[in-house]
Computed example of a mutant assay.
Amino acid sequence: MEQITLSFPATRTVSGHSLAGVVGSGDMEVLFTADEGETLVVDIITSVDNSQARWQALFERLILTGELPAGRMQIHDFGATPGVARIRIEQVFEEVSHA
């Protein structure tokens, strides 16, 4: 198991919290709690060792396609593909955008 913490500048604020996915389902779980800060902090627990570069690249692609909200995100990844990871992350962002 590897633990990774990443930080990115947030470009928007939202409110509330959101959950997407279920760890027990065999892919991943993403929890997001909004705050009034200027940073998105992402804590990742993954079963895939040496994956920090993959996660960094995923969030850099998300920055290019949209705005990141301020808050704290927890990701429990148990081998999900990058496509599934992106879907789960976008799901929590979408949910808090409508809270």
Rank of each mutant, 00 (worst) to 15 (best):
V96Q: 04
S25V: 02
R54C: 06
E67T: 06
A34Y: 01
G24Q: 14
D43N: 15
V30T: 08
R88K: 15
H17E: 10
L19W: 13
R61Y: 07
G37Y: 03
M28H: 00
I45E: 15
A34C: 02
A70L: 04
T81L: 15
Q91L: 08
V92L: 02
G24F: 08
H98Y: 12
S15R: 11
M73I: 05
S47N: 13
V42R: 00
A10M: 06
L31Y: 09
G16R: 10
V22H: 10
A80M: 11
L6H: 14
S25Y: 05
G37Q: 09
R72D: 02
I4C: 14
M1T: 13
S7A: 13
P9Y: 14
V48D: 02
G16S: 06
L31W: 09
N50A: 12
G37P: 05
Q56V: 07
A57G: 11
I75W: 05
I75R: 00
E29V: 01
A99W: 12
I63V: 15
L62S: 07
G24Y: 01
G71I: 07
P82Y: 06
V22M: 10
S7H: 14
R88L: 10
M1I: 14
E95C: 02
D77M: 11
G21C: 07
V96T: 09
A70K: 04
A57H: 15
S25W: 03
S97D: 15
L40C: 07
R12D: 02
S25C: 04
L64H: 14
S18F: 06
R12T: 10
L62A: 07
V92H: 00
G71F: 04
H17I: 00
L58Y: 04
E95L: 11
L62W: 15
I87A: 10
H98W: 10
M28I: 09
S47E: 08
G83Y: 06
L40I: 02
F32C: 04
G83W: 11
F32Y: 12
V22P: 00
T39D: 14
H98P: 00
G71T: 06
D35H: 10
V22F: 12
I45R: 12
P69G: 01
G16H: 07
